[in-house]
Simulated scan of single mutants.
Amino acid sequence: MRIASWNVNSLNVRLPHLEQWLRERAPDVAALQETKLEDSRFPDDALAALGYHSVFAGQKTYNGVALLSRMPATDVQIGIPGFEDEQRRVIAATFGDLRVVNLYVVNGHSVGSEKYAYKLRWLDAVHGWLASERLRWPNLVVLGDFNIAPADRDTHDPAIWNDDSILTSTAERAALRRLEGLGLADSYRWFSDEAGQFSWWDYRAAAFRRNLGLRIDLVLASEGLRPRATGAAIDREPRTWERPSDHAPVWLDID
């Protein structure tokens, strides 16, 4: 079973890329972020033609999340229970014995800003919710665009991306570790300790060609799934396509 995540950075623009990628990589579950579409415009018919069921929560121009799957989703949850938020950043569903939570984590803009404070509040709310989800669902996968690079090896230059920088600040990384403390692991690191492996590259300064990136797209999985895990990857190829998303898909394979 392949469980994937991709920040498509506008499904309106990237739908042909998504269709090609689904045909070539054939994930069983795919979590999308930044769909940037109102629900009435979501291309569920086009995706159904490729064999995928869709559940989604979108808004015009910003944010938007979706789960695509070979089997129908059950127990769908949109948003963080008890956390009032107009931004469409969270969708969860169950597929067989697997609970999948798709997050588009707040960027935060800059350390100390109002958006940064919102990011930390949002992550605290996610932690509280996932603590209860973890009790309900032994096989839990939390994936998406986390907008946090877990460690220095997940940045192209730790001198730039340091404790005072957005996406790598002390408080953001501490919030990510709290999520991992619920019994979730960064599944990519089950298979690779290598530094310099990234999932996001800025459009500017030829960042992709120069590999000036960050690894901020993550698949956190219950430790109990580790014996079933057979591989994890960052798929750089779609980042080479014409008019690409600035993110690459990531995935975890489990038996």
Rank of each mutant, 00 (worst) to 15 (best):
W129C: 09
L123S: 07
G144N: 09
G144F: 13
N63V: 09
L68W: 12
D75Q: 05
H156T: 12
P72E: 02
L68A: 12
R70V: 07
V111S: 02
P81E: 06
Y118K: 02
I80Q: 04
Y118D: 00
A149P: 11
K119L: 02
L140M: 03
T61V: 09
N147L: 04
L120F: 03
D124A: 08
G128I: 02
D85Q: 03
V126D: 11
Y118L: 01
A125D: 14
W161N: 15
G79K: 06
A66C: 15
L167S: 01
A149M: 13
H109Q: 15
M71I: 10
R134M: 12
G112I: 01
V90T: 10
V126A: 05
F83C: 04
N107A: 12
S132I: 07
N63Q: 11
N162V: 13
K115A: 00
G79N: 07
A73R: 05
I91S: 07
V141G: 05
V142R: 04
G108E: 07
A73S: 13
V65W: 14
Q59H: 09
L130Y: 09
N107M: 07
I160D: 10
E114V: 12
F83Y: 15
D157G: 07
V106C: 02
D163P: 10
R136M: 02
V111N: 01
T74R: 09
D163K: 05
D124P: 08
R99L: 09
W122V: 02
R99N: 09
P81W: 09
M71G: 03
P81C: 06
W161R: 14
N63D: 15
G79F: 05
W137L: 01
V142F: 10
L120I: 09
N102C: 13
H109M: 13
H127T: 10
I166M: 05
W129H: 14
W129Y: 15
Q59L: 03
K60A: 10
P150I: 08
F95I: 01
A92R: 06
